[in-house]
Design a protein around this nucleic acid. Structure first.
Lengths: 290, 290
DNA sequence: AACGGCATAGAACAGGCATTCCATTTTTCT
DNA sequence: AGAAAAATGGAATGCCTGTTCTATGCCGTT
């Protein structure tokens, strides 16, 4: 007999399938592993797509999908797809059900759970807060200033530094020229000395304010470099040096503030700038051609 | 022309379709009303079934389904089906709408406003997602491992770097000994060479994975240094080197992901670790005194 | 009671689907 | 280094799909 007496059971639900895939992923050949990764990362695509469309999206041949399904004991791709569909069927979507799901994972029963819940809740509150406190016109102006800048100087220290370092990463990907200010103390001022009024700066500082950041912002403002800033109080020393500034108070949990809302804000600003830049560039090009 | 000048708009989402069906239900002919009732009672069937299977189930002819779809302005049954599928695709229908409803500040009027709204909504979704996908027991174990560590090594590159830099800031304030790995390339490995099994590491890596991070995590795992990791796929190379790992998929807006949920997670972990350390330290002290 | 118009059923059709098969490449073992 | 085995890509295939079309049934109107 070629067949082993007891074959591994064919997974009957998504969880079992996921477990099976993770267990066997190491021993899978290249393309099948590719499908394995895709299927766990894009389960919805598998549920709704056709074999052809999924194959294209996962950069595989349709036949590979069939083989993949058969490797896990299914008759063909279609029967594997049923698992992915059932997953969506069972999950009752909607707001109320999501809350139930949240309490099903009741973190608060365990010691650290309430901390986790607390920070998630605080982040939600922070997001609600910026949605209503950020003035859309101010946002538009900020985007405008920064999109027109030659080089964007990112000023942030300590608690704000993760925000600017993320923006730096994103700007790099988006091909927007920037300078990250806030690393080695000595170099910073030399860097800023090169800024002209064709550049712009984005400064972030939360209480307790790093005096350096405020000083650097003031320095730039004096030299007519437009400054946009993000801070947590109207009394922030940054405000007076800034053409546009945003007040963003992160909700706290037990006195600790995360940066969830600031991150969302930073990302929105970054992408909005990049998008506007592209539009400006296209306009220039059209002008030159016309 | 027989066509009326302004036809009723074709419903673009499930809510609109539902409203349209309910509104016109009374004036529909018998079989079409039958389909209307069936479609609202068994939306999942419509989403996944074929025209033939649905027709059988609803005791109608397939052609009736097509006519039904056309009555509501769709080109055919297939395009109507898309609405039912989209309903299941969007995990959280509602945040966008909630934000629109919150339109004391109507961001969507201005160009960049929709970008802003989009990122806030995506952040909300991400937070819902971690709340239900992070296993509280795993979280507890992670806290345990990291709280007992002598020094916590923070491994993160590129897009993940802001997370670890924030944790570094917080650990500094909380007097938790740490080493931030991921700055100058040469030094990193020397740093890691000093790690012992009394230490622990927290690694963060999102797709596309920085191969360095995975290699460093593996190195540590081989030397019995316990590793906790945060990643966005079960296929992350980090997973296999880790004692505990978390899968956290940030929702995206227009293809860009922010770090809002990761930040909330990181902060929760950081504070939970610090808190547990304090308790452990108090226990030690009590032991010595008693 | 007979007509006219619309809704319906069911067959026919073309296109797209999942699947299979085989030639080729890649990997593994000798 | 060579041979055997496994994995892969890509075209061929037959089935099943959504849609269209036409004959029939139904109902309200005159």
């Amino acid at each position: 007999m070629a067949m082993p007496e007891t074959t591994t059971e064919v997974p009957q639900d998504f969880e079992a399938l996921k477990a099976a895939i993770l267990e066997r992923k190491a021993e899978l050949p290249k393309r099948l592993r590719q499908v394995a990764a895709y299927s766990l990362d894009n389960p919805d695509e598998i549920a709704f797509g056709t074999a052809a469309s999924i194959a294209t999206s996962a950069e595989v041949q349709p036949s590979t999908l069939v083989r993949f399904a058969q490797h896990f004991g299914f008759e063909g791709f279609s029967s594997l797809q049923q698992i992915f569909r059932a997953r969506l069927r069972e999950r009752t979507p909607g707001y109320e059900d999501r809350l139930k799901a949240l309490s099903a994972n009741d973190h608060s029963k365990l010691e650290s759970g309430s901390i986790f819940n607390g920070f998630v809740a605080a982040a939600h509150r922070s997001l609600d807060n910026i949605a209503s406190s950020v003035d859309p016109e101010a946002f538009e102006r900020a985007v405008d200033i920064l999109a027109k800048a030659d080089t964007i100087y990112l000023i942030a220290k300590r608690r704000s530094y993760p925000i600017s370092s993320y923006m730096a990463y994103a700007f790099g990907k988006l091909k927007v020229r920037y300078q990250l200010v806030g690393t080695a103390a000595g170099i910073d001022d030399d860097m800023l000395a090169m800024a002209t009024k064709n550049d712009a700066a984005f400064a972030v500082s939360f209480s307790p304010y790093a005096s350096e950041s405020a000083a650097q912002a003031r320095l730039l403002a004096e030299r007519k470099v437009p400054v946009v800033s993000l801070t947590d109080s109207a009394f922030s020393p940054l405000a007076e040096s800034s053409k546009v500034w945003f007040e963003l108070v992160e909700a706290d949990h037990a006195g600790f503030r995360s940066l969830s809302a600031s991150m969302a804000f930073a990302m929105a600003l970054t992408v909005a700038i990049a998008e506007k830049r592209q539009r400006l560039a296209e306009g220039d090009q059209a002008e030159r051609n016309g």
